[in-house]
Each structure stands twice: as structure tokens, then as C-alpha cells.
Design a protein around this nucleic acid. Structure first.
Lengths: 134, 134
DNA sequence: TCTTGAACCCGTAGTCCCTACAGGTTGCAG
DNA sequence: CTGCAACCTGTAGGGACTACGGGTTCAAGA
């Protein structure tokens, strides 16, 4: 039992659905811990470290920035979780997402409106260009 | 009449609502032409160049990438405008914007759902963390 | 005419989050 | 023991700026 060899970086990355180079990047910036090494210098990960990478990936999928992820990891430590603190981060992020959606929706409306007026022919005048020159 | 002095970079930037350093950046990457210089080396712009910067800024506001902007500028030259070619660029961009909105909307739903379940108190368990650990 | 100080100059580095190389070494199956 | 996939390190690139530092020029007021 004691000799259970760890996971390779490739395995870890694949399991979490993360690019292998990204894992090394996370290590460089201190988001992932420095793993043990084999005698030859290859990284060897524990299952716990695999869960951490998966956590990061899910947080990234929800659009959290790496600084937020760092904070969330700290708050996810057993015994340290405070729903109130987590909520502050998540709610702020939600606001950011909503603001982005609103921005893009305005953009979409303006663009769609202009493109609709395009006849799409070889005419030398074009509503899109006119909007830009206005 | 002949001596009408040009616009300073600061004036140009302010008129277009663009950061001054951004104008120099646009020059470096060839999006803005190299302007005349005063005897002391300061940039001196024409009104035409001011219109170009404003064009760029409006295109950026509509979310076009710099490569798209470059293409649109080429198509905006008098006599070269082809509504069909412009439409290809604008329609592709519109698709990108719509895809981003759809992505963010999914995100927003997932986040809002989770945050709603937060009691926001000092409880040691938190729905957000649980989702991330799942 | 001189002096101030705002505006300009240039080049480089930092932001965010990876991704992709290049050129070498290790691990393991056959 | 050979071959080759997987790993190693370090560095550069991407998009679109933004910010800095240390120097120079311009224009207006005294």
C-alpha cells in the first residue's frame, strides 16, 4: 500500500480536462502546489492534488478569475468555509457576468440592426461603413 | 492657409475618446499612419487622420477585433466599398457576439442558481463550494 | 527674454490566462 | 536493449492595450 505511485502530470491533466501546460503554469503561479518528483524528475501527484485541479477547473468554467479561484480554495479548506465570505466573491462575479451580458446585448442589437440593412450586394455604399464613418 | 498646424496627439486622442498611448500603439502596429512631425519631433495630425481614429474607435466599440478593423478600413476607402464584403465581416462578428452572449447566459444561470442557495451566514458549508467540489 | 510646467518623446514591461515551441531527458513496453 | 511516448526546462507569443521612467519640447505668462 505504501508504494502507491502518484499520478503523472499527463494523467492529472486529462482527468481534470485541463491542458498539461496549464498545470505547469498553475504550479508556477502558485495555484497548484509543487508535487513530489520521481527519481528522474517527473512530477508525481496525489489524488488530493487531482481534486484541487478539478476544483480550479470548475471555478474557471464558472468564469472566476485566478485570484478569485485562489480565494475560493482558501475558503474551501475544511473548517474554514464561511458561506458569507464565499457569497461576497460569487455575488461580485455574478454582477460582472451580468454587466458583460448587458454590454454584449447592446452590442448585438446595434450590430444586428446595421447588418440587417446591408443589402449584401456589390453596392459602393454600405450601412455598416456609414455607421462607422458617422 | 498653408501653415495650418496639425493636431497634437493629445488633441487627437481626446477628440476620438481614445487613450493617448493607444494612438501610439495603433501607429506601432500600422493601424494608424505615421503622422508628420514638428521640428521638435512631436506628432502632427491632419483632420483626416482624426476621422480615421474615430472610425477605429467606433469599430472597436462594436467589438470588432483589430484585424477586422483593418479590413473594414480598407473596405471603407472611397470607391472600394463593397457591401457584400463588409457584410461577411460584420455577420461573422455578430455570430461571435451571439455565441458569447449564449455562453455568458448559461454561466449566469448556473451562478445565480448557486448563489441563491447561499444563506450568506457563517455556516461552515456553502452551496458554492459544494458545487466546486462536486 | 526667460521660466515654468504641461504635454510630448521613446522604449520597455506589465496585464490576463494560457499556449506553443525547442531541444533535451526519462519511463516503460516489447 | 531499443524505440518512442511522455515528460522536463525555459522562453516567447497572443490580443489589446496600459503604465512607467527618464528625458525633451512647446507655449503661455512675467
Amino acid at each position: 500500500m505504501a508504494g502507491a505511485r502518484g499520478l503523472t502530470i499527463g494523467r492529472l491533466a486529462q482527468d481534470a480536462g485541463v491542458n498539461l501546460e496549464t498545470v505547469r503554469y498553475y504550479e508556477r503561479i502558485g495555484l497548484m502546489p509543487k508535487p513530489d518528483r520521481t527519481s528522474g524528475g517527473h512530477r508525481s501527484y496525489t489524488a488530493e492534488q487531482g481534486r484541487r485541479l478539478a476544483f480550479i477547473r470548475r471555478a474557471r468554467e464558472l468564469g472566476f478569475g485566478l485570484d478569485d479561484v485562489r480565494a475560493l480554495i482558501a475558503l474551501a479548506q475544511p473548517g474554514r468555509t464561511s458561506c458569507a465570505e464565499v457569497q461576497v466573491i460569487a455575488a461580485a462575479h455574478l454582477e460582472t457576468v451580468r454587466a458583460k451580458i448587458a454590454d454584449l446585448a447592446r452590442l448585438e442589437a446595434a450590430l444586428a440592426d446595421t447588418v440587417d440593412r446591408c443589402r449584401g450586394d456589390t453596392a459602393p455604399s454600405c450601412p455598416v461603413i456609414e455607421v462607422l464613418c458617422a
